[in-house]
Design a protein around this nucleic acid. Structure first.
Lengths: 187, 187
DNA sequence: TCACTAACGCAAAGTATTTGCGTTAGTTTG
DNA sequence: CAAACTAACGCAAATACTTTGCGTTAGTGA
């Protein structure tokens, strides 16, 4: 029932090994089978029994959400292009490309579809962190910056709205237009 | 397998009655049971067999998405408060309250969690229609308006982003701030 | 080392999902 | 209007997934 990734180290805890095996099994099967992604299949691949997965994650959707959140965790800081605007355009461009792809959209759905909102929050924190890194770097350069909140409200939000609700993902031009918008008006 | 609501009228089609019964059963059970919302339960309540539902909708998630989309369809035009800003603040305020509630968030999840993106698109169209009605009314009054696209990008998008990804829904002040933002800057 | 606790494996029981086949209802054609 | 046609439906058997009780095992603290 523990959907979080933080293992509580009480007497009988043995979480790390099983969690790693199950997560890896999910990632592998997601690439191969595309379709037959079931708890028994994951359990078999991970070398555990289905009941282990059910007891630990509850059901398939929560396991998939857990895996998706981990895959969304940034593994590196946004590339430094030398300017605030350049950093935003580059990182958000890469992010757009990644999240607009079919596996990317699947990951987003996996995260959003769990009844517990915690997973989506963690993704939001990841994204805010990246925007913050870009912002701090710009401040160190002496550039004029806007709040991370404004970047999220007026660039990341429309970007994700389009990907989730529209039939076509936003273009890079849309993205640059939104960035120009937040950089243009003050606060 | 026909997940859309438009019934194609070929020889053996008999869709309308069963669809209505199943949709109503889902809505009833969603209020009562909260939890035991299964295909067999829905089928029993609707007076059909489970196989009917599986053949027609594929699985529970697609059925729930279909029902959620129908519940999101606006039944009335946004109230006319006399001004563009007032109409936006009132309709978006009501919308925020509705969609930030637990059943509202559940509906959003149901719509977004289906692999076929068609459902979410229809919801986006519903929302755009409402914003457009408000806009046309303002134009008829001779008011200065902004594009529906800008309202969606800079008001609706952050609103939905917060509801989906943040731990707290946006406040009415946030909403008014976003509306003031789009009404303030040109285009 | 020993006691303790939570997680795990196993297997049986309980549900949900899929599928083949016969039947029924709605549509089109003559 | 009647006959032919087609897709959806009901039924029931087969399959697959999920839940649960109980004994065992591995990690933790004393």
């Amino acid at each position: 029932m523990n959907t979080s990734a933080t293992p509580q180290l009480r007497p009988g805890g043995r979480s790390a090994r099983v969690q790693a095996a199950v997560h890896q099994a999910v990632r592998e099967l997601q690439q191969e089978d595309t379709d037959g992604l079931t708890v028994p299949a994951i359990a078999s691949r991970a070398g555990v029994t289905p009941s282990t997965i059910y007891r630990r994650w509850g059901d398939l959707t929560q396991l998939l959400a857990d895996v998706a959140v981990e895959q969304m965790r940034p593994d590196t800081a946004p590339p430094d292009t030398g300017t605030y605007r350049g950093d935003l355009e580059t990182w958000l461009g890469d992010y757009l490309e990644e999240i607009a792809s079919e596996p990317g959209r699947k990951m987003l759905r996996d995260v959003l579809c769990t009844p517990v909102p915690d997973n989506a929050c963690r993704c939001a924190e990841f994204m805010a962190q990246q925007v913050d890194i870009i912002r701090e770097r710009a401040i160190a350069r002496g550039e004029h910056v806007v709040s991370t909140r404004d970047v999220i409200d007026h660039v990341l939000s429309p970007l994700l709205y389009r990907i989730l609700f529209a039939s076509e993902p936003p273009s890079v031009d849309d993205l640059h237009h939104w960035i120009a918008g937040v950089l243009g008006h003050r606060r």
